[in-house]
Write a protein that binds this DNA or RNA. Structure first.
Lengths: 223, 223
DNA sequence: GCGCGTCTCAAACGTATGTTTCAAACAGAC
DNA sequence: GTCTGTTTGAAACATACGTTTGAGACGCGC
């Protein structure tokens, strides 16, 4: 086998284990034994553990970035003159995520969980890699958000975008655990698509909320 | 020194390092050298690294849980018959967090960052510890949220609460970095209190958002 | 069949981790 | 001062990690 499948086996195993346990908590030995390959194969094919982490991200982020770019093209094509609405923009994003060709049924939630981890676990090398590689579609999304909320001040928009990112990254990064809890408590099963469908209106409403006069913090009467 | 200050020095150093780098990425040797105490002191005073992590949480979570309980008492006292509104409930929570006596100026953001990490880093022992120790005030908060949003279905409320937690934990856990970015970009300075003041209306609006009919996911026209 | 680049394998390397050990220093009671 | 329980100190322990090594197996062009 000239182009062996070892690389993919490693990527598959690493992807799943990273999503389950985080990066530092997953050792190369766990990965190689799950992938049923030799320990040295990782360093041979990828060079280092950090490079493997980046490769895991690249494998699903590159096609996603393309899909997203096309979705934005299509969206801007449909809205010739007026800028796309906030909901349209958010849906374009979620749709692209959900439509991504999945390797297996866990695909989407692994995808989300990894994205959440990338934000949360302070892996310096990962952040640099992602910024260098995928700043274009991210910047385009920001631009769309800006045009969709012309009434917001720059400062308000800045913070609310952070809130959105937080709600999304956090929820998605623990989506498996959260779904399990909900099933045990209320006996309801939820797909990632449904989570996304619930998230979008939440984000949209939050981003467009009326702003209250600043802090009633002390001795407020809450009349 | 009968009751030495070694314990507090360790807790201070651990708290700060955990907040900066996460749990697995912080070694006992980093902690003890920052605290200027002997390595063995950690295992002598706390028993294990996991127990130290829990002690760090207990130190700030226990007084916070008390403050919160009083705030809820006071809130329910003021609203004799009608249940407290959503905004009142959220403000009671934020106020309690902000009013907490801080050990230093970084106190509040360390506090938030640790809470975020507790949720994000899948440390099984921590989750169990927190559930066992602090389920009461948490449950009370949930009850208040429930009474304040009677129109929401249980499932909707569950997910939206997760979104709220995410937005809060995420933003607060990186509040230092986010404030710095904003200052460099727009020249605006922001206090933690102001972030909270912006966050509450966002959360409130999100929690009360109109729900869209479920997924228009495929072939949606976004008319 | 031979040689060569690609890949796998078991074993080892060096380092860092959490934890333990045991002697020394210390404080307070008598 | 002496004893006793508590706390610190330097060193070692066992283990796990990421990475490297060097020998061997494989596929393929010639």
């Amino acid at each position: 086998m000239a182009q062996s499948d070892t690389v993919d086996r490693i990527l598959d195993a690493a992807e799943e284990l990273f999503a389950e346990r985080g990066f530092s908590e997953t050792s190369l030995r766990m990965i190689t034994s799950k992938a049923k390959v030799n320990l040295a194969a990782v360093n041979y094919h990828f060079g280092s553990k950090n490079a493997l982490i980046q490769a895991v991200f690249a494998r699903f982020l590159t096609p996603f970035a393309e899909t997203l770019d096309e979705a934005f093209d299509e969206l801007e094509g449909r809205c010739q003159d007026t800028p796309p609405s906030l909901d349209q923009t958010l849906w374009a994003l979620t749709e692209s995520a959900v439509r991504m060709p999945q390797r297996n049924e866990k695909g989407i939630s692994i995808f989300m969980r990894l994205l959440g981890l990338a934000y949360t676990q302070s892996q310096g090398h990962l952040r640099k890699f992602l910024e260098a590689e995928y700043s274009d579609p991210f910047g385009r999304f920001m631009k769309l958000l800006k045009d969709a909320t012309p009434d917001l001040s720059a400062v308000d928009r800045y913070w609310r975008i952070q809130f959105m990112l937080g709600a999304t990254a956090f929820t998605m990064s623990s989506s498996d655990a959260l779904r399990e809890i909900l099933e045990n408590k209320l006996g309801v099963e939820t797909s990632v698509e449904e989570i996304a469908a619930r998230l979008v209106p939440f984000l949209s409403a939050g981003l467009q909320a009326e702003n209250i006069v600043l802090p009633p913090m002390r001795d407020a009467t809450f009349a």
